[in-house]
């Protein structure tokens, strides 16, 4: 059977993908969102792992938070790529954790610098990362709203 050039790659036997159907999360603007999530996931996880492994005692809280934030980004990236209804829920939780995390840690790092002698991903609302960590959960929520499974 000739392949239909217009059809998206599909998951198993679910057939063609509608704009809001399975797989929609990783197409269109979601493609770029996944790319940004992957970049943050990689950089924060690698940086956090390195800091926890080699410099843990210098700023334990900041480094553990970096690693945690990185893992949350990795979970969000994977969920957006999987793009199943279940993955949509996982992505929603991950994005909400990010939002709460960046707001909480951002506020704490400004009020109390003693516990954070070194930078962390969510520190000062993500300043080290060009404030992308503050912007990203908002874009993520908007995108998840558009791709909510029926």
């Amino acid at each position: 059977m000739p392949e239909q050039p217009s059809s998206h790659r599909t998951e198993g036997a679910e057939g063609a993908v509608s704009p809001r159907g399975s797989g929609a999360m990783r197409h269109g603007p979601g493609r770029v969102l996944v790319a940004v999530y992957a970049v943050l996931g990689l950089s924060a996880t690698v940086r956090g792992s390195y800091q926890v492994l080699f410099h843990f005692s210098e700023a334990p809280l900041a480094y553990l938070l970096s690693l945690f934030a990185g893992l949350v980004y990795v979970v969000a990236t994977a969920a957006l790529v999987r793009a199943t209804p279940r993955a949509w829920q996982v992505a929603l939780v991950a994005v909400l954790v990010e939002l709460v995390g960046v707001l909480t840690v951002g506020t704490l790092t400004i009020l109390d610098t003693a516990d954070f002698p070194d930078g962390t991903v969510w520190g000062e609302f993500g300043r080290d990362y060009g404030w992308v960590p503050l912007l990203l959960p908002l874009l993520g929520l908007a995108w998840l709203r558009r791709t909510r499974p029926q």
């Binding site: 197409h27 770029v32 790319a35 940004v36 970049v39």
Partner: peptide
């Protein structure tokens, strides 16, 4: 959005 990904990269 394909070229958008490239922009990010």
């Amino acid at each position: 959005w394909g070229t958008g990904v490239l922009l990010v990269a």
